[in-house]
Amino acid sequence: MTPLLEVQNLTKSYPVGRKGLFGKRMMQVLRDVSLSVHPGEVLGLVGESGSGKSTIGRAVLRLIGADSGTIRFEGQDLSAISSTDLRRLRKDMQIIFQDPYASLDPRKTIRAVLTEALDTHKLHLGTARAERLIGLMEMVGLNPTFLDRRPHEFSGGQRQRIGIARALAVEPKFIVCDEAVSALDVSIQAQVLNLLADLRAKTGISLLFISHDLSVVRYISDRVMVLYLGKVMEVGPADQIHFDPEHPYTAALISAEPSLKHTSQRIRLTGEIPSPLTPPSGCVFRTRCPYALPACAETVPPLRDAGQGRMKACIRDDIL
């Protein structure tokens, strides 16, 4: 099966301040990241702050440009595409944001928010419009009579549903969910997760689900990719990554997560996350890794096959 989205060797850095008179100091946030999302698949991206997970989400939508690497959506290379074609393609790929307060224009009614989406791609024109708006509201579990209200009249969970409705309005094939449930209360988070699960069951939509919450990612994703300092550490089927991590970083991350049931000993990581400005040589995780060898400092460990559809970027097989 050809993937819906295929990203190869994506690299991205941001300028931070100056170096000398003319030089720019660059902070590398993505290092050689490759991933693919198949039709109907949910790929989870997990990592701590500075891991580059949000940057990936925005780069694959071409909301920010990448330094190098290719992004193919349905076989089309997004970096070679004209801006007109890109705008047309935006119908098929959407994004849901973390902050339900910043993601809606406070001055627009819900109707205006959804209409902007439909107008842009000339969808459901004329009499079909009203029906579509009601359908969208119902799809995300909101009362259609709320259409003419403004965002400040809604709670965080309801706003998040509006954000989802906006993304769904153009019937995309692929949605980036950037920490889409992280800001919600536990009881509301479960509702929105169920809504996303229903949508994927009904419409066969693909998701790139970005989150720092490992249990949420495990529940919603088919496959999970673990990032650290802009590098892929491990990728594989969600349950396997969660219950049987192969990479020491994944194992540490999962053991650090506070849970009601886990009583297993936490794997202690020493020190803080290094600055992306001065990343460690070799394996970026080696400075905090309890299993690091001298060899880890020498070469960047390649992402290699670990069997059962899993890949890991660690030179050791004799641990975990």
């Binding site: 536990v186 988070q189 699960a197 919603i220």
Partner: peptide
């Protein structure tokens, strides 16, 4: 509250059609 946490249901998965036990309505 405890039921709606995904971490209390490690056996459930969205791909298998499982639903989290959410509380209806909003606080």
């Amino acid at each position: 509250l405890l039921e709606s946490m995904p971490s209390s249901h490690e056996d459930l998965h969205s791909a298998r059609g499982d639903r989290l036990r959410a509380i209806s309505g909003t606080p």
